[in-house]
Amino acid sequence: MMDAPLSPAAQVAAENDMAVSRRSRFLTLPSLFIVFVFGVLPLVLICIYSFLKPYQNGGVVWQFSTDAYLNFLFQRDIFDDTLQFAPDFLIIYGRSIFYALFTTVVCLLLGFPTAYFMATRPPEQRNWWVLLITIPFWSNLLVRTVAIMFIIRDEGLINDLLIYFHIINKPIVMLYTDFAIILGLLYSFLPFMILPLYSSLEKMDFRLVEAGYDLYASRWQVLKRIIIPLAKPGIVAGSLLVFIPALGAYVPPLILGGGRHLMIGDLIAQQFGSGRNWPLGSAQALILMAAVLVALYFYSRNETGPVKHG
């Protein structure tokens, strides 16, 4: 806010005020410096790397090339040097998107009733529920994923129990399957769905529900016509908070997929590891980033939209 012509005395006061405000801005500098140098510049760097040639032992050769992007879709034939369509990477991206979408839908189906149930508890119980959901949210993902692995292994708890009770006589193979990865994703990101849903449902004015019943709506109609529309911001936020990290997930497919069912995250890490093709890994990372930005764009558009309530 700028002010109209000031009296000389007031100008001094206003300038002092502005000076304090201006000095306070510089307090953001340490954070900005750290994140810019060690967070933004590395991203710029992989943008550059994606247009260079790989060095055979990892790293890059400073020579311009679009191979990384071409290699994403094509493979150069070793004999006649022609480009041939190779959908391997595309399949991994497609699979990742499918896994992420599927996880999001299941999280929503499980998360919405849970969040609603939490929001309708008495206040002191609510805090306990939130804590119960928050603990897995922040707990060590690696350890939690390893715990899943122990349970679904061939000689894991589930198979042991089923064999013990003679329901089966040969272990069911669950580890290193699509099922294992999706279970891992679901388990990792379920709290990411429940918490935003809960916070939008908790703010909801339940007198609106009463008004709905008063106007002859059934329980199902109230849910469909009143509660779900009002919870829409939470549904969108929760869905994106599950979809985005699930798309770039690294740990669950690494441990539960066993290298057989790769997702984008493992693919990228592989290029920087055993693949020794940093430009290709950089290009793959940027394509993932682009997908995330598209999702974030839809989110920001939705958030500034006219959906507002109580």
Partner: peptide
């Protein structure tokens, strides 16, 4: 807040500039 014009006198002293 400070006035954009005029004076605030406290016992004859202009305090408009004082924090």
């Amino acid at each position: 807040d400070f006035p954009t014009d005029g004076q605030i006198m406290l016992y004859g002293e202009d305090i408009a500039v004082l924090p």
